[in-house]
Design a protein around this nucleic acid. Structure first.
Length: 587
RNA sequence: GCGGCCGUCGUCUAGCCUGGAUUAGGACGCCGGCCUUCCAAGCCGGCGAUCCCGGGUUCAAAUCCCGGCGGCCGCACCA
């Protein structure tokens, strides 16, 4: 199938079969918002469930899932830096349509400090200086604020500004302390969240790929930078390969990705922290489960100027698509201790973690001890102020003075060894305070949905087939009576009723011919069809027909559910389930 | 936001240039019936279109003009 065809057919099937369509259609639609239809919603649920299984269920001692609000008070995004960093004054060229950061343009071209100036001031500077488009020389328009955060108001109080979160991450940072405590102070620990986020994009295009509101699946993985505790995990994947385009390669205009083993990437410092490498590898495995072959997955490092304000290193995880070329389905950001430090600073809460040292360390400190019995008698009510003054002085200085002169003078009062002792105390330190570092893998679920559909789409004998990996198929089983015969339909409906009670999503279809029903089932990607024929009435067997090979086997109704489960969840071949009954290849 | 292209049943489209016999035609899909022992078979019937919206020109507008909205492709941002 031609590449353009493929992409068009995904969009076609998406709309026709009800996977997705533009939202608010009857009011003309609004760019950047999409509805998911019945099959799209199921597919997305299954992709999310697969993500959950892959990252959370498989790492129960490493990652836990939480849920936090979507509407978030302003303070949080002031602390996180989003209020500051998601608002750009931009100015557009009226001639070529290019956009520029207004303040940067002014500083660069005019050498005037422009940061922090208002929109009006910036517009004024531009018009008075006659600054023009640096690319084409065209006239520049008005400067305006450009804010990716959706703003709202919490309650009836005007001062109470809230934002729709642009990432789920802040919820994990803010509740970090509590989760950490609940998880019995475990470190490293990952906190995951799946939920809606919104970004007020300037001009979203590309359908499902660029949405103003979407479902993000991400986790913040907290670890001690000095002791990541990743060895055990890295050892298992040390020789596995990642396809990388590093920032250095990009600067040298090398566009072909280079294959690094995880070991190489870490030893050469290409990936800055082991956990990031580990989760990048796991993310590759995850995409394979969605149906993307490894050869079509590449990690591209962001250049420093391209990175988000919180990031020390970012790799975009790219997947090759027919429609839009390489698109980013996940971002892997090394956020360092940026978020926890900022929230610590802005909230005043101690967000550090006490860590037990493997071996206690001796720490020697000078301690000033006051003989309050003597001092009290001599100083009476002056004791309090003298005491405070002494506390504010450095023990080292006090000791030196005492050793040299034999006394210390504080506010005209002479204190001798009678009054105070300065001695060295040796304490055993068993814990230290650590601000964990964070790596964050973050997936866009609608993008994955699109990617899954594109990779699933096949054409066979002029028919479209969505060959989803069986686990993520929206509908798992179709029950079909071979012909419109009362007894056969009756049996088919009984089987349908039985399957509805299981965990398998099932559908029933008796319209048109059997061939048409298979075609319909193939088109929405149903992995297996159960067909009830005349033989079923006499021996209680039905046929299972594989979506991909069109082979059929006979299975007794008593073993039907078990067989279907093995086929869907254990991915066994159709031939393993029973004797071949009918095979397209034989025709 | 700017430039280019585009907007007709659920989908794809004919008609538009050259305004009028168009009750806006077709195909596919969908629904109902007949038929049918395995891959979109056939036959019959049916539902389905404010021709993107608003204004203008005209005796007459899907068709010409203006404005708007939306989509796609580029610029910028991003999962």
């Amino acid at each position: 199938m031609a590449i353009d065809d493929l992409a068009d057919k995904v969009l076609d099937i998406g709309r026709r079969r009800g996977f997705f369509w533009p939202a608010f259609e009857i009011y003309g639609g609004v760019a950047g918002f999409y509805d998911l239809g019945p099959y799209g919603a199921l597919l997305k649920q299954n992709i999310i469930e697969e993500w959950r299984r892959h990252f959370i269920k498989r790492y129960p001692d490493l990652i836990v899932e939480i849920e936090t609000p979507v509407i978030t008070p302003e303070k949080v995004f002031i602390a996180s830096g989003h209020v500051e960093n998601f608002v750009d004054p931009i100015v557009g060229c009226k001639k070529c349509g290019r956009f520029f950061r207004a303040d940067q343009l002014i500083e660069e071209k005019l050498g005037v400090k422009a940061e922090g100036k208002s929109v009006e001031e910036l517009t004024d500077i531009i018009s008075k200086s006659g600054l023009r488009c640096p690319v084409c020389g065209g006239e520049l328009g008005e400067v305006r604020l450009f804010n990716l955060l959706f703003r709202t108001q919490i309650g009836p109080y005007q001062g109470s500004v809230g934002f729709f979160r642009p990432e789920a991450a802040q919820g994990m940072f803010i509740s970090f302390k509590r989760v950490h405590q609940v998880m019995r102070n475990k470190l490293p620990i990952g906190i995951a969240q799946i939920g809606r986020v919104a970004r007020n994009e300037i001009s979203p295009r590309q359908g499902l790929i660029r949405l103003r509101e979407f479902t993000i699946m991400e986790f913040e993985f907290f670890f001690d930078q000095n002791e990541p505790g990743a060895d055990e995990y890295i050892d298992k994947v040390r020789n596995e390969k990642l396809s990388l385009i590093t920032a250095d390669m990009r600067r040298e205009k090398i566009e072909e990705p280079q294959s690094f083993t995880i070991d190489e990437a870490l030893r050469q410092g290409v990936i800055k922290t082991p956990w990031m490498a580990f989760w990048m590898y796991e993310s590759t495995l995850f995409l394979e489960k969605i149906g993307v072959p490894r050869t079509n997955i590449v990690f591209e490092e962001k250049l420093p100027e391209e990175r988000a304000h919180y990031s020390r290193q970012t790799f975009d995880q790219l997947v090759k698509t027919a429609r839009w070329g390489w698109i980013e389905v996940a971002g892997h950001a090394y956020r360092g201790d940026y978020d926890l430090s900022r929230h610590k600073q802005f909230s005043g809460e101690d967000l550090t973690v006490r860590k037990q040292l493997r071996e206690p360390v001796e720490r020697r400190t000078l301690v000033v001890r006051l003989n309050k019995a003597v001092l009290g008698r001599e100083l009476k009510d002056k004791l309090d102020s003298i005491q405070q003054q002494i506390k504010s002085m450095s023990p080292e200085v006090l000791k030196r003075e005492l050793d040299n002169k034999g006394f210390i003078e504080v506010s005209g009062v002479r204190l001798s060894r009678n009054h105070l002792v300065i001695e060295e105390v040796v304490e055993k330190v068993v814990t230290i305070s650590v601000t964990p570092h964070v790596v964050e893998p973050s997936f866009g679920s609608e993008r994955l949905l699109y990617v899954a559909m594109e990779y699933a789409l096949r054409e066979k004998q002029g028919r479209l087939i969505l060959s989803f990996p069986r686990r993520i198929a929206p509908v798992k089983v179709a029950v079909l009576p071979l012909v419109d015969n009362e007894k056969i339909v009756g049996m088919a409906k009984r089987i349908y009723d039985m399957l509805k009670e299981t965990d398998l999503m099932v559908t029933y279809d008796d319209s048109g011919s059997i061939g048409r029903r298979y075609a319909r089932a193939d088109e929405i990607g149903v992995p297996v069809c159960v067909t009830i024929d005349y033989q079923s009435l006499t021996d209680g067997t039905v046929t299972l027909r594989d979506r991909d090979s069109w082979k059929q086997v006979r299975v007794h109704v008593d073993k039907l559910v078990e067989s279907l489960r093995r086929f869907i969840y254990d991915n066994v071949e159709i031939e393993e389930l029973g004797p071949i009954f009918f095979s397209e290849e034989k025709e």
